[in-house]
Design a protein around this nucleic acid. Structure first.
Length: 577
DNA sequence: GCCGTTTTCGGCCCGACTGTTTTCAGTCG
């Protein structure tokens, strides 16, 4: 997303926190949060908009627009700076600890002078919290434990880790006879790239039995809360899991509630309120007579609100409700639409598996084509040479006979050098069926330099896909700086696909970028970058990320039949002449 | 601070759980 949007998202979120900490109007705080989310998701650079255009963005009114302009024009926000003066430094940091909200953070600061997490740890060690009115020994204990949990597992877990944990938990609970239905919900069902807590929903009329069964699952560690319908635990690996048990006849309403997102739920609950109804996890009710109108299935609840069923990957209040009302919901790309993988490796370079094993696994997935794209020679550590390339090509011609239903494409993953050039000359490049080109070096170029570099590579008629386009690694490496708007426009202009790399620690492009790239008219390619046979199944993460970016089948290169894929490559090569 | 098919003022989603209280505030999702 554009840099200004990102900065404003962060600043407005800080603003919202400071309003809450300073005891300001909570609804006003929410306005800032909503505006922050809207700016973060906005696909164009807001720095280029005037006040009138800014106000056309939902949640941005007159004063928000003026503040955005102030920030763009003067690089400052004087009201936010004034507010920072009012709030003791460090109090906001304290609210990052689970269970410690603005009220308690202020209390701790006022009573004990605590202004950061380290000082709080010392105060707890001296048992100073229990003397404060409203706090007791339990609170002191809980905060101490939450700090420990936060410091050890502060990062959200990756999608694949959370998903396999959730699948294990669901399978375990399904064996309990009291469980009528069980599934995972929350950000995991929405397939967000990282997951805070794993949410499990079960239907049963024997809550005790389900909770006891949950407690006894081997991966479950400590219980942190247990009530009549809800229970929270920490797994042995330190992930928080929330279990909610509901009556079977409220399954659909509970699914919606527990899947979220919070913003999506608020949106549809407001729709209910406007009709004189009330929506909760127990169903959709009339306010006057408390009569339940829908609850059994998600479809029934959405239908009563005048909406089609909305796929979980879209439920972020990012325009999906409005699109649903207008009958414009996208028909999302599905896993079954994927016809092949266009970015994969073998043990000829840095992969773990032989080409035979990779091909057999791909064929078993039912792919109609598959590209072998081992690294090119400028990634010296992989020891690639032209001789090896040609030998691999000959081998593929041979192996093709073993896979009559799957066309094997011979490709390569090229390295984009700091000037935008790639490993081979046009002549040698034309021998490949398809190529991926990626940035593997010089991550610290200037924004302009990086932008120019990537666009230069895209202008090469023998470059068909840009691999992991932003270079980010979740929780470890930031994306490199470049002008995404210019790059996506160039992708559309040059007929180059932008990859959605499915590797769980990459997911690159990410959801918001996918939506933006598609909006710019670019084609995306959902690939696994597999280095082992087990990686090929990871395509589900890429498909989910593309869904979160509103991608439809027509936007995806490797959802096209082979002929159309070949035409995509040929069109680009023809441009060189 | 935003917003409008009851509205330009007065609303703003809804419920669960904990810990500290003797009926509720704070926090979470």
């Amino acid at each position: 997303m554009p840099k200004t949007n990102e900065e404003l998202e962060e600043l407005f979120n800080e603003w919202a926190d400071l309003i809450r900490i300073s005891g300001g109007d909570p609804f006003r705080a929410r306005s800032y949060e909503k505006a922050a989310a809207a700016l973060g998701a906005y696909p164009k650079d807001v720095a280029s908009l005037d006040e009138k255009a800014l106000q056309a963005i939902p949640t941005i009114g007159k004063s928000m627009a003026a503040r955005i302009r102030e920030y763009v024009d003067k690089a400052s926000l004087h009201e936010l700076e004034d507010l920072r003066e009012l709030v003791p430094p460090g109090v906001r940091e304290l609210t990052r600890i689970p269970g410690l909200g603005p009220k308690k953070a202020v209390l701790l600061n006022q009573e004990l002078g605590v202004s950061n997490i380290d000082e709080l740890v010392v105060a707890i060690g001296e048992h100073k919290l229990r003397g404060i009115k409203g706090l007791g020994p339990k609170t002191e204990e809980n905060i101490a434990r939450n700090i420990e949990q936060f410091q050890q597992h502060g990062d959200r877990v990756q999608l694949n880790v959370a998903l396999s944990l959730a699948e294990e938990l669901v399978a375990g609970l399904a064996e309990c006879t009291a469980v009528q239905e069980v599934t995972y919900c929350g950000s995991l069902r929405r397939m967000r790239e990282t997951i805070g807590d794993v949410d499990i929903l079960a239907a049963s009329n024997d809550v005790e039995a389900v909770m006891n069964a949950f407690d006894e699952l081997p991966m479950v560690g400590r219980t942190i809360a247990r009530g009549d319908t809800k229970m929270s635990v920490i797994t042995l690996k330190g992930v928080q899991v929330d279990l909610r048990v509901v009556p079977h006849d409220a399954w659909g309403a509970a699914l919606i509630y527990f899947t979220g997102s919070k913003a999506h739920n608020i949106k549809i609950r407001e729709m209910a309120v406007k009709r004189g109804w009330k929506l909760s996890e127990y169903g959709l009710f009339t306010t006057k007579t408390d009569k339940r109108m829908a609850a059994k299935t998600e479809e029934a609840v959405y239908a009563k609100l005048g909406l089609p069923w909305i796929p979980p990957t879209l439920r972020e209040d990012a325009g999906e409700v409005e699109a649903a009302l207008a009958g414009n919901l996208p028909t999302l790309i599905e896993l079954d639409d994927i016809k092949g993988d266009l970015h994969t490796h073998t043990n000829l370079t840095d992969g773990q598996a032989t080409i035979e094993d990779m091909l057999a696994t791909a064929a078993a997935r039912g792919y109609t084509y598959y590209a072998v794209t081992d690294h090119a020679e400028h990634l010296y550590m992989t020891g690639m040479s032209r001789e090896k390339v040609l030998a691999q090509r000959a081998k593929i011609a041979d192996l093709q006979k073993k896979f009559p239903k799957m066309t094997i494409l011979h490709g390569t993953e090229l390295n984009i050098d700091q000037h935008g050039q790639v490993d081979y000359d046009a002549d040698f490049l034309s021998g490949f069926d398809i190529t991926v080109a990626s940035v593997h070096s010089y991550f610290n170029l200037s924004r302009d330099g990086m932008t120019k570099r990537i666009i230069t590579a895209m202008e090469n008629p023998n470059v068909h896909i840009i691999g992991h386009p932003t270079g980010r690694k979740i929780n470890s490496r930031l994306p490199y700086e470049f002008d995404a708007e210019a790059v996506f426009a160039a992708a559309a202009r040059t007929g180059t696909a932008m990859e959605v790399n499915s590797y769980p620690d990459r997911l690159d492009l990410r959801d918001e970028h996918v939506r933006w790239a598609i909006g710019a008219g670019a084609t995306i390619s959902i690939d696994t970058d597999s280095h082992a046979v087990g990686h090929l199944a990871g395509i589900r993460y890429g498909v989910a990320t593309a869904q979160r970016g509103w991608a439809q089948k027509a936007n995806v290169l490797n959802a096209k039949p082979l002929k159309q894929l070949e035409a995509f490559v040929a069109r680009k090569r023809a441009k060189a002449r």
